[in-house]
Design a protein around this nucleic acid. Structure first.
Lengths: 146, 146
DNA sequence: AATATTAAAGACAAAATTATCTTTAAATAT
DNA sequence: ATATTTAAAGATAATTTTGTCTTTAATATT
């Protein structure tokens, strides 16, 4: 469904939201270990997330690292997709048609429509905070070790 | 959602199902023009679809080309994904976790579950034939020209 | 049998994605 | 001030995906 890049972005952001605070920032080492992603590559992704949309925040230097503000925690998961430039996945035609609409629907359009609606609803309303809370409650996991 | 390869595979198969018959086969030129895909690349894809799963049939030589049998028309759309080795898209964890299950769910798991179910239902029950029929009825389109 | 037409097969190439490594800049602590 | 720690920035590389081109094989027509 998503690119590796976006998968890492989602996992990293959720992990940071769960573990970090303005006074307890997380280093790239800890993050990439936790979510099982390549370190340098993840650094790039976090860089993008801090630049675009301010989904993630960072400070350099000792005791520096990544964290996520209370405000950002209230963003919908979709904000992560947006920051990664992959928001269009939720809107794209299943068959990859450039023109696919009510007026000129592809053969899957009508059937896929309600599914797309739910996908957009899910990513548009579920917040980063909510996902992080579920991890804290232990009902849900984010680690990726076999 | 899907790779270009699979998008082309879906469009090509549906187009062939609509236009071809055992006595009226379609050339790669006509197919790739109709669905707006790179010709040689599409040829490879059709090759794969004829080899794997026999979703598409072909014969070489004059009046040869691609067609799809009545039997194959009754296959679910999922068979195309399977032939392209991209069936797992319908099962994958949204966050890309290797381990994501009821026992050890990712933070999106519970919410994504009903959506995944509908996706699998759609691709598992909708047949190639049904999609092709909708095009013939003119209620739906497959061309990709701007 | 020879020729023409078509897909199959294979080699190659371009582009995008994924990943790594090195250098630089910012912030803190000493 | 200096040294240390951390992310930012940039250069480079590996891999995968996407795409092209050439040769071969099968089938039909003449």
């Amino acid at each position: 469904m998503f690119s590796k890049t976006t998968e890492y972005a989602l996992r990293a952001t959720i992990f940071i939201a769960q573990k970090s605070s303005e006074t307890n920032k997380l280093g790239i080492e800890e993050i990439s270990n936790a979510i099982d992603s390549p370190k340098s590559f993840t650094a790039k992704i976090l860089q993008a997330l801090t630049k675009n949309n301010n989904v993630v925040s960072s400070v350099r230097g000792p005791n520096g690292g990544f964290f996520i503000t209370e405000k950002a925690k209230k963003l919908p998961v979709r904000a992560i997709l947006k920051a990664m430039g992959e928001e269009d996945v939720l809107d794209k035609c299943v068959l990859g048609l450039k023109q696919c609409s009510e007026m000129q629907p592809c053969p899957m359009h009508a059937q896929y429509k309600p599914i797309k609606k739910q996908l957009k609803e899910l990513f548009g309303t579920k917040t980063i905070q909510q996902l992080a809370a579920d991890i804290k409650d232990g009902v849900v996991f984010i680690n990726n070790k076999k």
